[in-house]
Simulated assay, not measured.
Amino acid sequence: MKKSISITLCAALLALSGCSQNTSSDALSSDISSAASESQSTASQEESSGSSLQNGNGGFKVEGTKLLDANGKEFIMRGINHAHTWYLDEDTTAIKAIAETGSNVVRVVCSDGEQWTKDTENMLETVINLCIDNEMIAVVEVHDATGKDDKTALDKATDYWIEMKNALIGKEQYVILNIANEWTGGWNGELWRDGYTESIPKLREAGIKNTILVDAAGWGQYAKSIGDYGKEVFDSDPDKNTMFAVHMYGTAGKNSSVIEKNLKYAIDNGLCVIVGEFGYTHTDGDVDEAFIMKYCQENGIGYIGWSWKGNSGGVEYLDIANSWDGSVLSADWGENLVNGENGIKQTSVKCSVFTKE
């Protein structure tokens, strides 16, 4: 989403509509000691299952179409986007209020300084710690690259995260890195692929081990880019720890068949996907938000609604709350997202890193 919050979309003008590992062993042996050794090894693997060590990075790990947390438990996102970089003074109030909706994740709008005031390392650490203190996972994203078909915008976002890596390293169990919000406005899957297959290895080389989240091309709504090139983007990650997001407004989220088709582009390719943004309507048409939530719930897919508060430029209707403290939710959008059937309160499960189990 853009600040005018035409935000992410402009997609109104777009013409097109739009995780699990199996291990097996054939090794059979009549040798009793070999069989015992193999049995002991299997038992040891089962015993370690569910520990953070199995995820290698000590944090989240993509396994096929699923996202596992640091304890090896499946994590399904249910949350809300928060416009941090535009409303710094509201962070404490907003994040506490978002937690009170039952959300298990906050997607945090950040800036690399290209378009808005640059988030410093200290600012990032502060907002991330607010999310952790309120027992929610933080998904951080650079918004300055929104809708830009210029590869330098993605390069700048990538360089920014490398500069800010100390705010991410050591917090792999709490923070997911959404490199750039809706990079590429055009429906150009090749450009999208080429940008991310270059960006992701740079981040890994810099020592960033957090799970990476990549928005689809076309203002986040061109889900076919994931179907066509998502596997190449995933394979470019040396850690094989990248997932994808489709943003659903009047183009990608207009009806049940389009919604299902757009999410299956990833799923049918064995990739992990979430709905990283959606509303109940937008400048490019109505959105079937009830089906988005229903389909995600039935299929174990995460969703994050846009956005808590602060929308402007004629799209104020996308505010989930009428006040920063969440005392009144918007009738047409917030009430349905938070309290509706398949909404956040009914379906959200806190990440196990915050539980005592």
Rank of each mutant, 00 (worst) to 15 (best):
I132R: 11
I95A: 00
K73W: 02
I95C: 07
M123V: 09
E74A: 14
G64E: 07
W86S: 00
D133F: 13
W86N: 07
I76F: 10
E125A: 08
S48I: 07
D69Y: 06
T92E: 09
R78E: 02
G113L: 08
I98W: 06
N104Q: 13
E121A: 08
I98Q: 00
G56E: 13
H84N: 09
L67A: 10
N71T: 10
S51P: 05
A138G: 07
G50S: 03
D133L: 14
I80V: 12
K96T: 05
N129S: 15
S103V: 10
T126C: 07
G58A: 15
H84K: 04
K66N: 10
D91L: 05
T65N: 13
E63G: 04
N81L: 11
D119S: 10
A94I: 08
L53A: 06
L130F: 06
S111T: 08
T101S: 13
L67M: 15
D89Y: 08
G79R: 05
D91I: 03
G102M: 14
T126Y: 04
L67P: 02
E135Q: 15
R78Q: 05
Q115N: 12
K66H: 11
T85N: 03
T126D: 08
N57D: 14
T65V: 13
S52V: 05
E135P: 12
N81S: 15
E125K: 10
V105R: 02
W86H: 07
A138D: 01
N55R: 11
L53T: 02
D119A: 11
E47V: 14
G59P: 01
A97E: 00
V108E: 02
G58C: 14
V140Y: 00
G72K: 02
V139M: 15
D133S: 15
L67T: 14
M77G: 01
V105W: 02
I98N: 04
N81T: 12
V106S: 01
L53C: 06
L130T: 04
E141K: 03
V108F: 07
T120I: 14
L88T: 08
C110A: 15
S49L: 14
E135H: 15
D133H: 15
E100T: 02
M136F: 03
T85L: 05
A83W: 04
Y87V: 03
T101E: 07
G64L: 13
